[in-house]
Design a protein around this nucleic acid. Structure first.
Length: 178
DNA sequence: GGCGTGATTGTTGCC
DNA sequence: GGCAACAATCACGCC
C-alpha cells in the first residue's frame, strides 16, 4: 500500500514546495537553492550546471535502473497536483529529459504516424535516452540549466511579492478548502 | 465536456 | 541517503 510518507509528503509539498524553501534574498544569477534541514535551518546549496552535468554522466549509467521499471509509483497519485498551489507560483521547469522528449516526440511521430500514445513514445524515448552519450545529452542539460535559472529568478520574485503582500489576493484565491 | 491515466527521466524537498 | 512528488505531452477512457 501507499506508504504513510506518501500522504504527508504530498500535502507538504503542495503547501510548502520550493516556495517556502526559497530565500528571496538569494542572488539569482547563480544556481542556488535552499535546503531545509531537519533542524529547520535553511542551508544554502549552490548548484552549478557542472554538477548537474556530472550527475548526468552518472545517470548515463542509469541510476534509475535501481528503481523498479514501471509501477514504481502509484500513477494515480502522480497527477494529483493542480490542487491549491498558488496559480502565480512558477512551475517546476522541465528536466533535460523532457526537452529531449519534445524533440524525440516530433521525430518519432513523423516516423510512426500511427503511434500517438505518449506511453509508447515515452518508452521509446527512455530507451533512446539511455543509449545517448553524454555529449548528445549535454545540450539538453544546458537548456534545462538555463530554464532552472529562470525558474529561480521567477521564484525569488514570487516570494518577494508574496512576502510584501502583493499576492495576498491570489493566496486567498488558491486557498479553497483543504 | 472535462478530468484522470499512463509512460518516461531528472530534479528537488523532506524525513 | 532514500523515497516520493512533480515537471510535459496527448490519445483515450470514464463519469
Amino acid at each position: 500500500m501507499a506508504k504513510k510518507a506518501t500522504k504527508s509528503r504530498k500535502s507538504r509539498s503542495s503547501s510548502t514546495t520550493a516556495a517556502s524553501a526559497y530565500n528571496p534574498s538569494t542572488p539569482s544569477n547563480e544556481f542556488c537553492c535552499l535546503e531545509r534541514k531537519p533542524d529547520r535551518k535553511m542551508v544554502l546549496r549552490v548548484k552549478s550546471s557542472e554538477k548537474m552535468k556530472r550527475s548526468a554522466q552518472q545517470s548515463v549509467v542509469s541510476e534509475r535502473e535501481k528503481r523498479p521499471k514501471s509501477k514504481s509509483r502509484p500513477k494515480s497519485k502522480q497527477k494529483k497536483k493542480k490542487t491549491k498551489i498558488d496559480a502565480k507560483m512558477p512551475k517546476k521547469p522541465p528536466t533535460a529529459f523532457f526537452y529531449f522528449l519534445e524533440d524525440f516526440r516530433k521525430e518519432f511521430q513523423e516516423q510512426n504516424p500511427d503511434i500517438k500514445s505518449m506511453r509508447d513514445i515515452g518508452k521509446a524515448c527512455g530507451e533512446k535516452w539511455k543509449l545517448m552519450t553524454y555529449e548528445e545529452k549535454v545540450k539538453y542539460y544546458d537548456i534545462a540549466t538555463e530554464k532552472r535559472a529562470e525558474f529561480d529568478r521567477a521564484m525569488a520574485e514570487y516570494i518577494r511579492r508574496k512576502e510584501s503582500g502583493e499576492d495576498q489576493e491570489t493566496e486567498d484565491d488558491s486557498e479553497f478548502d483543504e
